[in-house]
Design a protein around this nucleic acid. Structure first.
Lengths: 159, 159
DNA sequence: GCATAACCGACCATTCCGCTAGGATTTCCT
DNA sequence: AGGAAATCCTAGCGGAATGGTCGGTTATGC
């Protein structure tokens, strides 16, 4: 498994927030209910998203969370990074912002273990996929394939 | 971390085997020494590679391991899969051979959670990177950047 | 027959994952 | 003023995976 459920749950959470057209904050309990995820676990995840500035919060009654900025300005790389930590294919692997990578096995002047070539490509593949997808895309996809969710959320209280 | 040290060590092992031009089998202890990896742990890893047919073994004195086929016919996707198991970005995610994906959240007729779009892209990115790299490439890279390793191996006994 | 090596299975310490619990704090509504 | 509703924070916990170790068995060359 490349990623843990943190990324899965967190992305679901972000999509749910993105579906809210008006600026009204969404309570975490509503997200937990409609996505059927444990509320107290979501609290931990949303904390990471908040610290990364991807969501903003409003405390107190009728409070909740909203996106930190417009959904089409949020690329999923940021989201996954906030949830899972820096993305590296391997323990020894560290990439600086410019995409340059370094490997901790490169001690004693010994440059470039052979695996570096491979992990660099993998790293490139996954970051490209993540950075090339915006939250807005996922929200749109979600609206197309599950337009009933708005009603589901209100109907859930009756069930 | 996308992958564990299993992939790292296992790939290093494969590269080391690939550097052996003649068909002579390489003892695991030699690999362990020159790569400075724990021998008994390597045994477990090489077992997975053998079961996948990526290496063949010769038992007894002067035995060891050699590549199951030519290095340029081994794509790294196979290697990593053998070591880490099926590659899926997420727990709920399963891809059949044709690349079609299914998500376990798609129960009760509910098709396609929004995250599926994202994970499909990620999956594509990493498998493309892995499948597009052959062991031969890594071996060549290794020969270029650390041509001293052959001498290092024999000199290691003196050190 | 002995050294060398591949094999195999059990175990083990540490860390991570997924989640719960319990509280404190802020805010709205009446 | 005083709930109720919500975010926030810290601590813990059971289970699984990680990254090994160890001891023993089998096969093979010299």
């Amino acid at each position: 498994m490349l990623f843990s459920t943190r990324a899965e749950y967190g992305v679901r959470l972000m999509v749910e927030l993105g579906r809210q057209e008006d600026g009204a904050p969404v309570a975490l309990s509503a997200v937990a209910e409609s996505e059927r995820l444990p509320l107290s676990y979501l609290e931990h995840l949303v904390a990471k998203l908040r610290k990364a500035g991807l969501v903003s919060s409003q405390r107190g009654a009728h409070g909740g969370y909203r996106l930190g900025r417009s959904a089409d300005e949020i690329e999923m790389l940021e989201v996954v990074q906030a949830l899972e930590g820096a993305i590296a294919p391997m323990e020894c692997f560290q990439a600086d912002p410019e995409g340059k990578v370094s490997c901790s096995h490169e001690t004693d002047g010994d440059q470039a273990c052979a695996t570096k070539l491979l992990w660099t490509r993998v790293q490139g593949g996954v970051t490209k996929a993540l950075a090339g997808t915006t939250l807005a895309e996922l929200v749109e996809f979600s609206d197309q394939h599950a337009p009933a969710s708005a009603e589901r959320r209100t109907a859930a209280t009756a069930a």
